[in-house]
Design a protein around this nucleic acid. Sequence first.
DNA 1: AACCCGGGGCC
DNA 2: GGCCCAGGGTT
Length: 389
Amino acid sequence: MPRPSTSPLPSNKAWPEAASLGKKLLSWYRAHKRDLPWRRTKDPYAILVSEAMLQQTRVEVVIPYFERWMERFPDVATLAAAPEDEVLAAFSGLGYYRRARNLKKAAAHIIENHDGVVPRTLKELRALPGVGEYTAGAVASIAFDLPEPAVDGNVRRVLSRIRRIEVDPASRAGASVVRESAHTLLESGHPRDLNQALMELGARVCTPTGSRCGGCPVAAECAAFDVGDVDRFPVKTITSRKRVRMIAQVATIQMNGSVLLVHRQVGQCDGVLEGMWEAPFHLIDPQDNPSDRLLGMVKEWTGQELEMGEMIGSAKHSITYRDVEIRVFSATLKGKPARKLEGKSWVWTPVSSLGTGSPTSSLTKKAVRVATRLKGAGRGSSRRLGTRG
DNA sequence: AACCCGGGGCC
DNA sequence: GGCCCAGGGTT
């Protein structure tokens, strides 16, 4: 494919060592690849599930979630027919819960438009909810062995270093340069293993910091290693959003070993953890005075007055760019919650099964852990907990 | 291009 | 405390 003359890289024919690079990557990968659950199958559905879970999430974290998921939703039809709450619950603690909703939507789409069979073309894959450029390429190559680039953070870093790409791969221009390089590399064949080899190298050898070039199978082919400035790549020009400090006031309302969770309706709750079942909480700026919004919230959901107790402990948490200090308050309802208003659902959930039935985030899990640890440990340890954070 | 979405582990 | 992770969607 012709390349614009303004490109910071020479044309692909000026990368004659691509084929030899591919060969070395392949033999290294085949000798050193980790035994991961999704590498034991070629089921396109399983590959799709793994790729969705792996978005912005480390391999080691995904493994148990993937295995539980495949047991509970073994195929497209099962997933398409499953209640959304169960699908979300399977992501409880994993984060980016939209991925779970999109997987279910994708399953419905596949039933509707492809007779329940995961499509093979890039275009059809891209049409699935939650499947972007990377995931489409990953499924096409890993499941179907098609020569499509799958450029994730690892591949961006590895190729930036090997070719000393001076453009930020996070920018549009840089992304296209990396993608072209990946495409050239795939011309040497074996896209399924080659794409995974690039990712595996980035995850295990060519790491963001402390890269182990001594153990790298392609150090001899790496331009940055040759020059000795590996750590300069990938170049970074785009700064991430500044993190902000926030406080979450959480009401833990307990009864008979259960906690009261409310359903966070879309557009009603600070824009985070929408659709999840959480202990009533709201986010406030550290400079603001604590408001009584929590009381109104619970009243609105359950029809009962809330009596806030003492702050019984705290924990740290993060939600995207927010660093949250969780402040846990014990609380009681003045009467029995009876109302079931439209879009204002609440539920008593056993502490022991948090996140397994109703989908619940790590924030609520942490808050409940603080509340129950205190209860079980007695007054002696409450001082210790209270001084944390 | 910027901003949003969770959560955790590592330096 | 910053960075980054087998990113995608929306604006």
